[in-house]
Design a protein around this nucleic acid. Structure first.
Lengths: 129, 129
DNA sequence: CAGTATCCGGCCGGATACTG
DNA sequence: CAGTATCCGGCCGGATACTG
């Protein structure tokens, strides 16, 4: 959703900009970022392998990619300890921690409404058949 | 992120299930769903073309797909008026409206913290070079 | 341990054209 | 108007193997 060319000469405002949460969705809710942030938030500082084991089915390559992105966005702090064997620790940053109420809010919505979504899907599929 | 096989015989709880917001993210924050819900929420009931015009760069095929998904999940209500030419109207459902505080929360986080993310990216890129 | 390198398949979204 | 049909390219993530 990287929006290029926002300053085109089209009349009026870019309609996509009318949705003010687009950028934040890309940052916080791209694939794997929520499980990573959640794990870091609830279990505290963790090493690479710990994260790898804690998050089912993620591959090291993808975990690295996501962690780099999160680090670049300032949501996660990476600490490298030059030992043998090397030790790297990841922890959630202040900025990342500021997402906690949002996540709680999301979790609350889930517990309140996920079954309604499930029900709706069931009904919809029944009607289609 | 469709999690199959949650009831496998692996010892302990599936670690990915430890993140309780995974399913909700798939429902609410998959591509194009936020602009669609946002538009429906702020501009009220809209016809297909109105949505198509209001959301920049979305194609009719993709808009249809997303609207169907949203309808199936119970977040959007579709009303078909059998006229000539046909008229179809989409509006946000009760369930969809229940996301409003969440979206407001997200928008608030964005205004408060998006510049920090931007700054962090800038710093990160500067260090890499 | 904490990654990187390489290859590869699938899927999703975009473009285009067409229809009841 | 409100879609559907078809084709197609790119990208992302998964699998696998290897390294300082």
């Amino acid at each position: 959703m990287a929006t290029k060319g926002m300053q085109t000469a089209t009349a009026g405002t870019d309609p996509e900009l009318a949705c003010p949460i687009g950028p934040v969705v890309d940052i916080v809710f791209s694939r794997w970022t929520t499980p990573i942030l959640w794990s870091l938030h609830t279990h505290g500082r963790q090493r690479f392998v710990e994260l790898e084991r804690g998050i089912a089915r993620i591959t090291p390559k993808v975990l690295t990619q996501r962690l780099r992105q999160l680090e670049r966005d300032g949501l996660v702090v990476r600490t490298y300890h030059p030992e043998v064997p090397p030790r790297v620790e990841y922890e959630i940053s202040e900025l990342g921690r500021s997402l906690a109420p949002l996540f709680a809010h999301l979790a609350e919505w889930a517990t309140d409404n996920l079954d309604k979504v499930e029900q709706s899907r069931h009904d919809y599929d029944a009607d289609s058949a």
